[in-house]
Write a protein that binds this DNA or RNA. Sequence first.
DNA 1: AATGAATGAGTATTCATTCAT
DNA 2: TATGAATGAATACTCATTCAT
Lengths: 187, 187, 187, 187
Amino acid sequence: MTVSEAPARRARRYDPGRRDRIVATTLDVIVEHGIAGASHRAVARAADVPLGSITYHFATLDELLTAAFTAHVDTVAPRFDERMRAARDSGAVLDYLVEHLAGDLLDSARDLVVMVELYVAAARNPALRAVTQDWMARSRRSLERHFDPVTARELDALVEGLVLHSALSTDPMDRDQIQHALARFAR
Amino acid sequence: MTVSEAPARRARRYDPGRRDRIVATTLDVIVEHGIAGASHRAVARAADVPLGSITYHFATLDELLTAAFTAHVDTVAPRFDERMRAARDSGAVLDYLVEHLAGDLLDSARDLVVMVELYVAAARNPALRAVTQDWMARSRRSLERHFDPVTARELDALVEGLVLHSALSTDPMDRDQIQHALARFAR
Amino acid sequence: MTVSEAPARRARRYDPGRRDRIVATTLDVIVEHGIAGASHRAVARAADVPLGSITYHFATLDELLTAAFTAHVDTVAPRFDERMRAARDSGAVLDYLVEHLAGDLLDSARDLVVMVELYVAAARNPALRAVTQDWMARSRRSLERHFDPVTARELDALVEGLVLHSALSTDPMDRDQIQHALARFAR
Amino acid sequence: MTVSEAPARRARRYDPGRRDRIVATTLDVIVEHGIAGASHRAVARAADVPLGSITYHFATLDELLTAAFTAHVDTVAPRFDERMRAARDSGAVLDYLVEHLAGDLLDSARDLVVMVELYVAAARNPALRAVTQDWMARSRRSLERHFDPVTARELDALVEGLVLHSALSTDPMDRDQIQHALARFAR
DNA sequence: AATGAATGAGTATTCATTCAT
DNA sequence: TATGAATGAATACTCATTCAT
């Protein structure tokens, strides 16, 4: 019986792309445990990286969180814009939104959690507020491919509200209801 | 909405109503520092009460937060219902909502912040989710005094989205825009 | 949704024998959670009695623990003495001890846990040391009904050792082995 | 066996071997104040190390206690085995045991206390139970150098009982009595 | 006589960050 | 460049005991 609590970390000194992996893992941790649960340690554990490695790449937690959310927006916003570009007309946009809100709830659930966490954090963190506003602006600009600015903004707000509701309600709206709500904005 | 941090601690063994004061102060702290900042210590300091007093009245932080949000909902929901009861018709309701969302009344701002904090916390905390759902249900029921259930639900979602936007955006919608958005649901 | 965290304690102001019930419950708590787990609160909860009631009847924790262990010894020691008195000869005593150590492990397990907890606590608590020594002396005196003082003492020590072993070993001695060990002391 | 509580904290960022020092100090604290007194803080104070240092090296108190007891067993068991190996015959073994149990050497007293604390803790802590069982098995195996397995086991139990008695009794057996008791197992 | 409230010290543990190597 | 060690403040929560009623 000998004392042995070696943390079983495979040596991995050469590890290119580690920085990116840390950023990606940070998002995973946020999704699973919230921003409150996204500590240096939690991320280090999840990314299987020594604690010092996190603080080496990111001077502060804030910097890490900002990097993570920025990366998220840079993934999600272009994808959304692409969908908008691909849509033939405003009707097609609404169809897509219905699909997004009612359908593949696995992927959207993730996006939604990230969104809400970001929104609240932004309320008290200027760096994140910039990220949030960038995201809002981009998504509105994408919608403006098919709607006038006023409608785009209203639609954006409604979608946000619907997302919140479907995230938190035990009795979420069904596809028809969502369709009906969005139709208020279509021709 | 300022929290007095007076370090002077008068001896005060007999202090009826302290429990309620703690609950009220908890809401203040949430508004000022977010749920993440609502620690036992922070609340104790703000309520000018010894730390042990908090844990005496509330076995866990969760219990305290739940009590605080419940108290908030029990204040806000009846007030909203009263407004709905008082409104002559659906037009009057929309007028009130516009006022509520656009008026940068201190009270409104406070309510917005509490709501958003609650929503995010609810995503990870079943007890708070129950509070949230109760709130949603009550507010929908109030709207149903003037709208059919489908419209009430849609309107509720839009309001939620608008709240999020106005709570977090640096460039919130103006009164006309809000009015215009809500008008989609009026007769 | 109204706040209601009433601790659901049935009113029971008139409750004779409560003192005794507290003492008995304290022993239960010690058995289940160890002396370290026998706090005022734990006992109050287990005995379904308000916290203040414990400190009302027992000025300090020490007093409560002492009362509990004393009660235990006053139950166990006479019982053991009765067995010794009833035994025809030293052989019958050994038969009884074998039975006790190998057999009804449910009751003995409880006694054993109490014994070991008491012993260790006694090492640092004078009040409990007195209880322990009283117990040791009484049990030795009981054995002296059938053995000379020297043998009684040795037998007592061996029994204690066997009890410890059977309490902690995953592979306890079987009846024959115990019988064989004790036989060293019989004629 | 005195624990220096020097409040002077020299800056000491580089301190190799600190982990081992913490483990050793933990045993000291257990000897002086019992397991119940072996808190993170108590150990930190005794080892003249900041509190965070303890939790850095040992994620939980359990881990620390386990390391301490394991270290103890890894010191004591080989030493005992060495004595057994060195003993010419079973008589020499008994002589050594008498010496060990009767000599009020500081070292012996210390070992006794550690043993008893370990035994009680083991009753409620699986990790410590493993340490205990390891110790029991090793000590039995050492005895088997001179006794058949059955006798070794009985002797072990008796020794344990004698240890308990001499650790806790104010009126411990004298050398002759111990000698006499052990002689029951000699040729 | 009895008890709910109060309290200050204490518990284990987590944390962001800094430092020495 | 990379990282294990270090650290002091903070976290939620428990506790024995005292007090006001």
